[in-house]
């Protein structure tokens, strides 16, 4: 068993990306390796500069969207992207993009934020997640 957390980031809404980024930070701080596998809407959210204008939240909490974004701005809460960059600074964080989503949405590696390390298939991710102490689907 590897001292590693594997996250499947499927959702592209700010509330869930925030949760993923904070979990990543916590795990990195506690010395765990972290691997993120970005797929579907989660990958869309990593298009270059997309995080700067993304204000979507989960549909079942749509009514909280603007108060949440306003509170985050007023309290200077770092964005989920800043959290991920901070986590990478202190720990071992790798970000993989799902090749199938790339193909489906016509996304190229250079269209993505520089934090994305490489494009992989699901089998590679699962093979590594199999050994991870924690695996979560967000």
């Amino acid at each position: 068993m590897a001292d590693r957390m594997s996250l499947i980031v499927f959702s592209g809404t700010v509330d869930k990306l925030m949760a993923a980024s904070i979990l990543t930070t916590g795990a990195a701080a506690m010395g765990m390796e972290v691997e993120l596998f970005l797929t579907t809407w989660g990958l869309e959210a990593f298009r270059k500069d997309a995080y700067k204008t993304n204000t979507r939240v989960s549909a079942d909490f749509q009514d909280y969207a603007s108060p949440m974004m306003e509170a985050m701005q007023a309290k200077h809460v770092p964005s989920w992207m800043e959290n991920l960059l901070g986590a990478r600074e202190i720990g071992d964080v790798k970000v993989f993009a799902c090749s199938m989503t790339m193909e489906l949405f016509g996304i190229k590696h250079e269209d993505l934020e520089p934090i994305v390390d490489e494009v992989t298939g699901v089998a590679t991710f699962v093979e590594r997640a199999k050994e991870s102490a924690i695996t979560l689907f967000i």
Binding site: I22, T25, G26, A29, K75, P78, N83, G86, I90
Partner: peptide
């Protein structure tokens, strides 16, 4: 600063 800010 909010969790995990101070720890960072």
């Amino acid at each position: 600063s909010f969790c995990p800010g101070p720890l960072m």
